[in-house]
């Protein structure tokens, strides 16, 4: 790896100032950055660790609302009883990342800020309708998760801006995440699909569907959501929703699989994940 300057600031303001410089990279868990540096695909001149800044890690619950600090380990997200109960899809997504050793290092903030369309926590955050809190030396702001990403590896974050927290205000009574992959564990998502629903007397009152690795950014399947919302789920309706999700996405072909296969799997897995979320919502 190339030599670099290493900083361990203790305040967000200091970190933000350092991060605003050119060729600076943030170090959270390091599970993406260090690999990139070893492979010379990342050659930062300065690396700014977030480890010593207090208050960035941990999961706190206020009634139904859950806040997850950006420096929270993915393993903690996976094992949190509150996340498992209210945002099952997110806990399931977290459990799909790498190995346990990796999950004990990797942070949810890093998984999101890396802005891979295939990130395993992203579909769960999309269907949780998470708010992303961002800090910089100039102050704080907040964006909805579905407005964070602008392209592969690209976000709306300005130079010096650091993700501090994910706020998950709306619990879902049923949610589920499915990852299409070859290997049982330690595989990257060929595609990822999450669904979250609330039911009222057999009618879908809330529904959110998040898709990973089928477009330049993680996306919501809004057409499919609109078809389902306000209706009682039927097999025919689920079929339509699956097809709507598939035709609404824009996957690519790469060495893992073809765009056509990805699209077909969006159809199949949207049906399945909505069905599973519905089953959970109705206590099955």
């Amino acid at each position: 790896m190339k030599s670099f300057e290493f900083f361990e600031p203790t305040t967000l303001a200091e970190a933000s100032r350092l991060f605003a410089e050119e060729h600076a990279q943030l170090l959270a868990g390091g599970t993406d950055l260090v690999i990139g540096m070893k492979a010379y695909t990342e050659t930062p001149q300065s690396v700014i660790s977030l480890q010593r800044i207090p208050g960035l890690a941990g999961i706190t619950t206020y009634g139904d609302s859950i806040n997850i600090g950006a420096m929270t380990k993915v393993r903690e997200v996976e094992l949190s009883a509150d996340v498992q109960q209210h945002h099952t899809a997110l806990a399931e997504g977290a459990s799909e990342i790498g190995s346990i050793q990796i999950r004990n290092l990797a942070t949810i903030g890093g998984n999101i800020a890396h802005a891979s369309p295939a990130a395993d926590t992203v579909a769960g955050l999309l269907v949780a309708d998470a708010q992303v809190d961002i800090a910089s030396a100039d102050g704080e702001r907040s964006v909805p998760i579905n407005e964070l990403f602008t392209g592969p590896g690209q976000t709306v974050l300005a130079p010096g801006e650091i993700i501090t927290r994910f706020r998950l205000p709306k619990p879902a009574s049923g949610s589920h995440y499915i990852k299409h992959k070859i290997r049982e564990v330690m595989d990257l998502a060929f595609i990822g699909v999450a669904a979250a629903v609330n039911l009222d007397n057999g009618t879908i009152t809330d529904v959110r569907i998040g898709l990973a690795a089928v477009a330049p950014t993680p996306v919501r399947a809004t057409e499919a959501e609109n078809l389902l919302s306000g209706n009682a789920p039927t097999p025919e309706l689920l079929e339509e929703a699956g097809e709507a999700a598939a035709s609404g996405c824009s996957p690519i072909s790469d060495l893992r699989c073809s765009a056509e296969h990805r699209r077909e799997m969006v159809n199949i897995l949207t049906k399945r994940t909505v069905q599973n979320a519905l089953a959970r919502a109705s206590g099955e």
Partner: peptide
Amino acid sequence: VNPGFVDYRVPTSAD
């Protein structure tokens, strides 16, 4: 094009 264990998959004990 897959010179590493991310896209050259070897099985794990879970498979």
